[in-house]
Amino acid sequence: MKITPEEVAHVAALARLRLSPEQSAKLTGQLNDILTHMDKLAKLDTSGVPSTNHALALTGALRPDQARPSLPRQEGLANAPDSDGVSFIVPRVI
């Protein structure tokens, strides 16, 4: 088994997902199928091969440090589930 039910629970916690027991069982099976397919990568010798994170060799895109108009606060808050017109409101943390 590539990934155990306990690992599935751990990964779900990392990803901030709450899974039902049925969901967990189904996902464990499916993730095992998928990860078994990934095994073929391990058979390939990649020693000394650099990793590619990005297909184009673009370097850091910089622009002059000038103030520009940005989204007005009201528009930024327009989609907020809860706000007081100034900030996003979330459940109490402390």
Binding site: M38, L44, T46, V49, P50, S51, T52
Partner: peptide, 12 residues
Amino acid sequence: AYYGKAGQVRTL
């Protein structure tokens, strides 16, 4: 084993 390896094979 996964992300690192995948990045290398992406190069290949």
